[in-house]
């Protein structure tokens, strides 16, 4: 074992892992974080705490992670390279580990253009792959990125990264994953999967390079609340691939039945993905719909979560 991470224990134990996410509030209320996280208690192995998601200012992912940790749950600290340089990020990694956080996700982050501070500088001192390298160097060599030795306790982070099998150029997507794994990613959380054929094709490439044996791949899942949400994701979110059939299927049922249909699609997707060699678990992103995660996990036969 590289770390004390609960997620690592679940994955290395051969269980299908389940993670979900909790976006911190746009205010300073600790209770909001706790309330949101409570929906996920006992239901998932780790809770992603997003870092200024979609470039909108929110409570810091570090503070959110600590609040979730205080509830006895396992936070998964997300960190984007957009907002801080390598000094600030390493400082936060030390601080996070000191506060009991041992799992993180390394991202570049959405461009500031999409957020509420479009006028802010995009830092990008390093990119997501270099962030993975940095966290690994801290953990395995006990060294800061600048080369100096870490004094005393070394932060032993279980390192995650993201992958989007649906972005272009498609032929590069497996290779980019290979770079993330070579940099030190222990697990991957993918973009929401709606186009299963394309995902399977990507996984074929992943297996061909043997990448599924070097790292755990959690398939990204998002239940659609309504046909509006489906259309929004299809048309407005860059790098999201929602096939027209799914939009049609959602619009084919009455408005009040759409949430149930969305959950049904999500469960069908999970059943199919369980059959895909190399899928090591699920990352359920129920955006503003955290209360449904428990139902999804239970109906998918992934409950109770293993005690490791």
């Amino acid at each position: 074992m590289k770390t004390q991470s609960n997620l690592e224990k679940v994955l290395s134990g051969g269980h299908l892992a389940v993670t979900s996410e909790c976006g911190p509030p746009r205010g300073a209320s600790a209770q909001t974080v706790v309330d949101k996280a409570k929906y996920l208690e006992g239901v998932v192995d780790a809770v992603n705490i997003t870092d200024n998601q979609t470039a909108v200012v929110r409570m810091s992912s570090l503070a959110g992670s600590v609040l979730v940790k205080q509830q006895g749950m396992n936070p998964l600290l997300q960190m984007v390279t957009r907002d801080r340089n390598r000094l600030a990020m390493q400082a936060d990694i030390l601080g996070a580990y000191a506060l009991g956080i041992d799992t993180m996700l390394c991202l570049s982050g959405d461009h500031t253009k999409f957020g509420d501070h479009a006028m802010a500088a995009n830092v990008h001192d390093i990119d997501s792959i270099q962030l993975i390298q940095m966290v690994k160097g801290m953990r395995d060599e006990g060294k800061f990125q600048g080369g100096a030795e870490i004094k005393g306790v070394v932060p032993k982070m279980y390192i995650g990264a993201a992958a989007n099998p649906f972005a272009d150029p498609f032929e590069l997507r497996v290779m980019r994953l290979a770079k993330k794994i070579a940099a030190g990613a222990d697990f991957i959380q993918t973009q929401c999967i709606f186009n299963i054929e394309k995902f399977e094709k990507w996984m074929e490439g992943v297996r061909k390079m043997g990448l599924h044996e070097k790292c755990y791949i959690l398939a990204g899942i998002t239940p659609m609340k309504s046909v509006g949400a489906a259309k929004y994701m299809k048309n407005r979110v860059p790098g999201m691939d929602v096939p027209q059939e799914l939009v049609d299927r959602m619009s084919g049922v009455a408005k009040e039945d759409q949430p149930a249909e969305g959950i049904k699609i999500c469960l069908e997707t999970m059943e199919r993905l369980k059959e895909v060699e190399g899928v090591a678990g699920f990352h359920i992103m129920a955006i503003d719909w955290e209360e449904k995660v428990e139902e999804i996990v239970k109906q998918a036969g992934l409950y109770p979560r293993p005690q490791v």
């Binding site: 990119d127 972005a167 590069l172 790098g239």
Partner: peptide
């Protein structure tokens, strides 16, 4: 995003 190891997931 001046990525040195791109492209990010937003390339379409």
């Amino acid at each position: 995003k001046q990525l040195m190891n791109g492209p990010c997931g937003g390339s379409v």
